[in-house]
């Protein structure tokens, strides 16, 4: 039952991706897609996330609908934190995506 649900979800995602690609619609309009905008090494704007999992001045882990995003660096500070968008400043060293193990 679980695998059927997963299959349906994957198929739906694949269909939507193909649709946006063929219709030349920006991919950030897809539901569940997280948008990460990096400006230089000192600023990152993240949109469409679920919440903060962990936050220290060296590491920020954000939960999204598909994966976790880990931002590591130094003197990390959240300039603003709202439901749709957050802006992080500091010296950003790494942005990584971690898929949850299934």
């Amino acid at each position: 039952m679980f695998s059927v649900k997963m299959m349906k979800k994957k198929r739906r995602e694949h269909f939507l991706e193909k649709l946006t690609s063929d219709a030349m619609i920006p991919k950030d309009t897809l539901p569940g897609n997280t948008c990460v905008s990096l400006t230089g090494q000192k600023e990152v704007i993240i949109e469409n996330y679920k919440g903060i999992l962990e936050y220290t001045s060296e590491k920020l882990i954000i939960m999204t609908s598909r994966c976790k995003i880990e931002i590591s660096g130094k003197h990390l500070e959240i300039c603003y934190y709202a439901k749709e968008e957050m802006k992080v400043t500091g010296l950003i060293q790494c942005v990584s995506y971690c898929r949850p193990k299934t």
Binding site: G51, I52, E77, I78, C79, Y80, Y81, K83
Partner: peptide, 14 residues
């Protein structure tokens, strides 16, 4: 923090 974001209470300089 997540509850604040969910209830549209904006935080800044966090």
């Amino acid at each position: 923090l997540n509850l604040c974001a969910f209830h549209r209470i904006n935080l800044w300089n966090l």
